[in-house]
């Protein structure tokens, strides 16, 4: 089943506030072998919050996505500043584009990640490939 065609252009509610602790950043840096200097998060850390936003989209029953058919096609981040310990982040996901190719839905998403003051921190762009039953 294809996803709801009216999905394109829709913005979903922000994710619950995510407090970024020093220990969370140490854990993420350890897991990726990265250096953590106590100030700047590893560059891909915002995926943790963006992933929550994407999960919200994929689990919304009105959208019609079957989770096990989703492949992460691409990912891009643009940073206003690095994530820092003490940040409280939210991600607000918008479906920028929706195309169908060969029975698959190609869903272009943009998650705006902001701090507690609403100031932008990072934008995470992800393409989700949702394979249809016959794909």
């Amino acid at each position: 089943m294809a996803v709801d065609p009216s999905l394109a252009g829709r913005t979903f509610p922000p994710t619950p506030p995510y407090p970024v602790s020093d220990e969370r950043l140490r854990e993420f840096a350890r897991a990726t072998g990265s250096t953590y200097d106590g100030e700047s998060a590893p560059a891909t850390f915002p995926i943790v919050v963006a992933f929550q936003a994407m999960t919200g989209l994929m689990q919304d029953p009105a959208v019609g996505i079957a989770l096990h058919r989703v492949v992460h096609g691409d990912q891009r981040f643009t940073y206003t500043r690095p994530v820092r310990p003490g940040d409280v982040l939210t991600a607000t996901l918008t479906v920028d584009s929706l195309r169908q190719i060969g029975g698959a839905d190609i869903i272009g998403t943009r998650s705006e990640i902001a701090d507690a003051d609403g100031a932008p921190v990072c934008t995470a762009f992800a393409t989700l490939v949702h394979k249809g039953e016959d794909a």
Partner: peptide
Amino acid sequence: ALAARALDTWAGGPGRVVELGCKF
């Protein structure tokens, strides 16, 4: 994340990446 780790090494420390992306 491993690509970002290499970038930190080349840049001389974390916090210097302003854009990063790829296809899987």
